[in-house]
Structures are given as structure tokens and as C-alpha cells.
Write a protein that binds this DNA or RNA. Structure first.
Length: 147
DNA sequence: GCCAACGTTGGC
DNA sequence: GCCAACGTTGGC
């Protein structure tokens, strides 16, 4: 899961009550589907910092809720407001994420240096989704790198 | 700030 | 349903 650290950093989540943050604002259908159809309590998360000086995996996190309608879609004052969404027919989903381990910051340059990770979806050309799956072998490899 | 990649929008 | 225009993402 990608977050802009200027918005919400891994440290911010660690400093939050219960080390839990509500993940909202996803407005891409493919990313929405990964949340809605692919995430469940206990799933591991690579918390990735994007659009910053040194992009990379900032820590390990975990899904701690089921997916639920992202409340910002109903709020006309929110930048994430979607006039076509209604509580009866929500369009966008959020989920709760808990920071569990910080370890070593593994930056994008290092990720790209490992042949084991060359097929990572995150590293694919043109990959822009803010939420995407990680293969089990890639997950295990990165967990070791983080330490 | 640039630009490639990609998604969405809207006229037809 | 096509596709050009436009907007966004995100690394550099």
C-alpha cells in the first residue's frame, strides 16, 4: 500500500492510537477491487512511501478490519467526495491498517537491485496503483531485507 | 518541473 | 462503442 509520507508516513501510523490508521481516498477501481475482494484481517502489508525524496518500503503493517465504505466519498467538503456515491450504493472502500514493524528502510533503488523482485508488480513499468498484491515469495524476501 | 504511463471523460 | 483530450501518478 502506497502512502505519501507528507500525508501519512509510517511514523505517523506508529504514533497513532493503537498504531492503527484508516486507509481512505482510494479512487481507482482496480485498487478498490484489491481492497474489497482481496484483503482480510491478518493480511500483511508493505507500507510504501511514494512521491517523496527517497521512495521505498518504510515498514510492515497488517490489515485489522474488514473493508468498509470510505466515508469521505459522502462528504461534499472532502477532496475525495464522489457525488455519484450514496450510503446505499457506496462506490469506494477503506480499511484499517496497523503498523507492526519498522526495521530497516528499503528504498526503491535497492528493491530494483534484487533479481528476486524483478517481477514485482510495484516495480513494473507504468505501475501506478496505490494498492496492489504482493507475491508470497516477494513478501518473504522483503521481510528478510527489512529485518 | 518534466514526462511516460495510464485512467477517465465526453463528444460523436 | 470509439477515441482524442485531459487529468493524475510518481520517479527522476
Amino acid at each position: 500500500m502506497k502512502s505519501e509520507p507528507d500525508d501519512v508516513s509510517f511514523d505517523d501510523v506508529l504514533a497513532s492510537p493503537g498504531q492503527v490508521t484508516s486507509w481512505y481516498g482510494v479512487r481507482n477501481y482496480q485498487a478498490r477491487n484489491f481492497i474489497r475482494d482481496g484483503m482480510k484481517v491478518g493480511d500483511g502489508v508493505l507500507f510504501y512511501h511514494s512521491s517523496c525524496a527517497v521512495p521505498g518500503v518504510a515498514g510492515l503493517a497488517e490489515i485489522v478490519s474488514a473493508p468498509y465504505p470510505d466515508a469521505t466519498q459522502f462528504d461534499p467538503k472532502s477532496p475525495y467526495y464522489d457525488p455519484k456515491a450514496t450510503p446505499e450504493q457506496p462506490r469506494w472502500m477503506g480499511i484499517d491498517v496497523k503498523a507492526v514493524h519498522q526495521g530497516r528502510y528499503v528504498d526503491l533503488k535497492e528493491l530494483r537491485s534484487h533479481p528476486e523482485l524483478e517481477h514485482m508488480r510495484l516495480l513494473a513499468k507504468g505501475s501506478r496503483l496505490s494498492v496492489m498484491p504482493v507475491e508470497p515469495a516477494e513478501w518473504r524476501f522483503i521481510v528478510k531485507l527489512i529485518g
